[in-house]
């Protein structure tokens, strides 16, 4: 061939993610896709549909639910599961449920019980040996160093100093019974890549990413949205309608909104590019434990 086809960066990233997903399906016994309903999950799900077309993706979706997600997220979750033809598994940690663990009263324990413990319990319950996650290396410092195939001990621990070397596109999926791997097919995507891909491929995302007038309160410098009646208002506190949107979606009482007028995807991307703060800045989780918050959480089994 004399003429070269110039593959764009998104085409190369897409091909890489598809290759990774097919390797997992070929080598793992029981894979699952962790689906958090955020934009990264949306892209990952879309890539899975591409990877196995015309077959539906040969694994279920798992939503580790905290019961504190935004209502709009639950709606999109159910719709997307139906559209992809995949089984949707929803898991809620029964102990957290029983003890009424919530982000207002329990702080860090909320994330630990619902998400970290909930995820471990769900993986053990179903016996999944490989779990796809939508984490990206540009999100956070310890993630920048994590492998695409990230090995976890039988107790779900991550040992950052003893990661398996990962060469070329040869992934080592071997493990003993009880051990598992977390696989991150969009490791090499940036926030801008994700947005651009959503735009190009017209991938449905939660409307909360777009600006709209929503009831909010301001606390500790964070704008929180009052998504339902469970939100405890302090004395004299009144929700204020503000034009806001979210750059990242977690549990609604833990996710800070930004004031914004960006109501379309190009406007959102424009705002993302011109912004001066990083994406996870709105998340309380990264601020725990000094600089090593995420690394520590991951060692304990957080996704």
């Amino acid at each position: 061939m004399s003429e070269h086809v110039n593959l764009t960066h998104l085409q190369r990233l897409e091909a890489e993610a598809i290759h990774i997903m097919r390797e997992v399906v070929a080598e793992a016994e029981k894979p699952v896709m962790l689906y958090s309903v955020g934009k990264d999950s949306a892209v990952m799900l879309h890539l899975a549909r591409k990877a196995f077309y015309p077959s539906p993706p040969p694994f279920p979706l798992l939503h580790v639910d905290t019961t504190w997600k935004f209502q709009a997220m639950y709606e999109l979750r159910n719709e997307m599961a139906e559209r992809s033809g995949m089984e949707l598994l929803v898991y809620q940690n029964p102990e957290a449920k029983e003890r009424g663990i919530n982000p207002f009263d329990h702080g860090a324990l909320h994330t630990d019980m619902w998400k970290t413990e909930g995820l471990k319990q769900a993986l053990d319950l179903y016996g999944f040996d490989a779990a796809f996650g939508g984490a990206r290396r540009d999100e956070e410092k310890s993630r920048a160093k994590e492998r695409v195939f990230s090995f976890r001990t039988a107790s779900h621990g991550w040992d950052p100093k003893n990661q398996r070397p990962e060469l070329w596109n040869l992934y080592n999926a071997r493990k003993k019974k009880g051990e598992s791997i977390r696989v991150f097919p969009i490791s090499n995507w940036t926030e801008l890549d994700v947005w651009q891909y959503i735009h190009l491929e017209d991938i449905p995302i939660v409307p909360l990413y777009f600006s709209e007038k929503r009831p909010t309160v301001e606390r500790d410098g964070m704008l929180l949205m009052v998504d339902d009646e469970r939100f405890p208002l302090a004395e004299g506190e009144e929700p204020v309608m503000r034009s806001i949107r979210f750059r990242t979606l977690g549990c609604y009482p833990l996710t800070g909104a930004v004031e914004s007028e960006a109501a379309t995807l190009p406007e959102v991307i424009q705002e993302t590019l011109l912004t001066t703060t990083s994406e996870r800045q709105g998340r309380a989780i990264d601020k725990d434990e000094g600089g090593a918050g995420m690394e520590k959480k991951k060692q304990e089994g957080y996704f």
Binding site: R137, K141, A144, K145, P160, K161, S187, L192
Partner: peptide
């Protein structure tokens, strides 16, 4: 900025490969 692991920041050396992105 690029030394992401706690042990790396403490010891001031790079232990593992870090992947970074720019356009």
């Amino acid at each position: 900025l690029v030394d992401g692991l706690a042990a790396e920041r403490e010891q001031g050396i790079t232990i593992d490969v870090a992947y970074r992105f720019f356009n």
